[in-house]
Nucleic acid binder design. Structure first.
Lengths: 183, 183
DNA sequence: CCCGAATGAGACACTAACGTCTCATCGTAG
DNA sequence: CTACGATGAGACGTTAGTGTCTCATTCGGG
């Protein structure tokens, strides 16, 4: 009887990731519940998006924790992070594009916390001489988000095999497309 | 008297790039014309988006032509391409995310032509030994689009200086974040 | 200078989606 | 078994945005 709020959020995330303009009715149907019930649990579309935001932040934060970014080399940490974040990639890319709509007014401050962690990771990597210093931590952070979103989309569209997702992202982000000379 | 269709499209692009859900009325106001006039020139929102699509395709194609991808090294070609595409970056990122809404039905075939050109460029770069072969041309193409969109967004949000736009994108795409050993 | 074409402003009907409400049904705890 | 709470289905009014229309105004070419 008690509604599985988590399961509703996950199916909503799966749907909205594919079609961000989906109707409340479609979200309800996708979750296998009635529209009235959906409204009972989430006051409106905004509340639903907020809940998805919280979910995404929790998942990303969990991925950051699981990645243990400080253990071993920065490269290893990054690989663990991308691998850990993969299941939430679609949701995160939805939230990133969704956030652009909020005109700077009130973005969940959770994002700032996450941005700070990721950005600090890149900065530490620079200080330890593992990352280039001519690319700012802020840009590397944004690029990571962008590539995760692009990767999720490319997999969804069938242009990249799902199993290659972490490899493609990490290799491009770390090594770039240029063939290194010593190879 | 005769409406400057091009100018209307450009202001619409500028607005929709920032807020993709803007109203027809807002688009009209942004262009400094009445809503009725906007409707006289673009039958509806769909028609407007199609026109923006055509514009974006034309601009990207022009950038591809201007970049002369085959002259000199692949790296130089890529640098020229990113520099040439910079003014249209916002519009392109809007169109890329907008395209995700069309459920595979009818995407403008112009995109296929452009995708083919970019993808072929990366493939040639691989064949000439300039690009790694473990990253597929399709993924490099998607990553280029993604980084252009991310870059446009980061500049817009003030997280990256506008003048660094081409450098950040090309350097990351080519060289990656890892600090090379010989440096 | 004058006439026609295009524009801007606004009224209008229509639609889609939202949010609320009611009511019958169903599952489950007690 | 019973009663209570949650659910699903659907009706309802409201709102925002759309697309069409009219009409007065204005611009520009002849």
């Amino acid at each position: 009887m008690t509604l599985d709020r988590e399961q509703v959020l996950r199916s909503a995330a799966a749907l909205l990731t594919r079609r961000s303009t989906a109707t409340m009715d479609e979200v309800a149907k996708a979750a296998g519940i009635g529209r009235a019930t959906l409204h009972r649990h989430f006051a409106g579309r905004d509340a639903l998006v907020r809940a998805l935001e919280d979910l995404g932040i929790r998942e990303f934060e969990a991925a950051l924790d699981a990645a243990a970014l400080d253990e071993g080399s920065a490269e290893e940490g990054l690989r663990r992070l991308v691998a850990a974040v993969e299941p939430a990639a679609g949701l995160l890319s939805f939230l990133v594009t969704e956030n652009q709509l909020f005109e700077g007014d009130q973005v969940n401050e959770g994002w700032n916390r996450l941005d700070a962690r990721v950005s600090a990771f890149f900065r530490r990597g620079q200080e330890r001489g593992e990352f280039r210093i001519d690319l700012t931590p802020a840009w590397l952070t944004e690029a990571l988000y962008g590539l995760i979103g692009t990767g999720a989309w490319a997999v969804q569209a069938g242009r990249v095999a799902a199993q290659d997702f972490p490899y493609m992202i990490v290799e491009l982000l770390l090594g770039g497309a240029r063939r290194s000379v010593e190879k």
